[in-house]
Computed example of a mutant assay.
Amino acid sequence: MRDLIKEAISDLKNADGFIYVTAEGDKVDLHEAAKKGIPVTPVNPKDQVIKKLEKAGLPLNEGKFLNELNELIALVTGNAPAAKTTKRRTFTDAEKSKIVEEWKKVEAAGKKTKAAFAREIGVGYQTFINWLRG
């Protein structure tokens, strides 16, 4: 399985849009085939990889399977995202003003970037920028 995955990665990284196969289905270098007079067929490497992986029992074009595989990998590696249980927060105009005032103090001290400050208070960067403009 590992060799199949490595080959798939290689095929996708090294192909210039297509890979070339003989009538028997063997991969061949286009220049080599031309020198030897071997007829070849251009094939989309992505389609070839998908077929090989499906044949091996890995249907990567199925969204549900991909989600399950990604979840498995995350759980095995310990990189599973924490479950989101927080509700989206709405700020009043007074709260926004107070946050902007706090930013002015932090900015004057030169301690943080706008992005770091926005993360710290739990607000999206663009939302914070809009508050500063507002």
Rank of each mutant, 00 (worst) to 15 (best):
G78Y: 03
A82P: 03
N79V: 07
K6D: 09
G134Q: 10
G25L: 02
R119E: 13
E101G: 11
N70Q: 09
L72H: 12
E68T: 07
A74P: 04
F117V: 10
A115H: 10
A116C: 05
K96D: 04
G37L: 02
I50P: 01
V43D: 01
V40C: 00
K52A: 14
E62A: 10
K64M: 09
A33I: 11
G78N: 06
A15S: 15
F117P: 08
V28Q: 00
A118C: 12
I19A: 01
P81L: 10
A33M: 10
F91D: 05
T92G: 02
I73A: 13
T127D: 07
K104M: 09
W131K: 09
A33S: 06
E7I: 05
E95Y: 09
R89F: 00
G25V: 02
F91I: 08
A23M: 04
L132Y: 01
I73Y: 03
A33Q: 07
R89W: 02
I9R: 13
T127W: 06
N67R: 10
K87C: 01
K98L: 09
G37N: 08
L66C: 11
N67Q: 08
E71M: 09
N79W: 02
R88C: 01
T41V: 01
Q48W: 10
I19H: 02
T77H: 05
K35C: 01
G122F: 03
N130D: 14
G124W: 02
T92M: 02
E102K: 15
I129A: 11
G25R: 02
W131D: 07
D11F: 04
T22F: 00
I9L: 12
L4D: 05
A94S: 13
T113L: 07
R2V: 00
L69V: 04
V100S: 01
A23C: 00
E101V: 13
D47K: 11
K13E: 14
I9D: 08
T77L: 14
N130R: 14
G110Y: 09
E120C: 10
N14D: 13
E101T: 15
V76F: 00
